[in-house]
């Protein structure tokens, strides 16, 4: 699975999503998009997230880590050097 396939159409970044992209630095990632992100993640995991898990989902890195704890590897584009 690829993070851009999952969240790209929702967050509409003009470049591939990167680990450091977050609520703080991605302009399109507002509170409404956050709901979409959470629902998309829940859909992909096949289970609902707890309030605590949702509270910690603030960046792509957090999402990748969450998938890892569920035993799912999700690919993220490497930033250009």
């Amino acid at each position: 699975m690829n993070i851009d396939d999952l969240l790209g159409p929702i967050l509409q970044a003009e470049r591939p999503l990167q680990l450091d992209d977050s609520v703080e630095n991605l302009a399109s990632w507002d509170s409404i998009k956050q709901v979409d992100v959470i629902l998309a993640v829940e859909e992909a995991l096949g289970s609902g997230l707890t309030t605590s898990e949702i509270d910690h989902l603030r960046s792509i890195r957090d999402i990748v880590e969450l998938f890892r704890t569920h035993g799912i590897k999700i690919a993220v584009c490497e930033p250009e050097q």
């Binding site: 396939d5 969240l7 159409p9 929702i10 979409d36 629902l39 998309a40 859909e43 992909a44």
Partner: peptide
Amino acid sequence: RTRGDVRA
């Protein structure tokens, strides 16, 4: 379809 598909 995923949420992203529906959004598109």
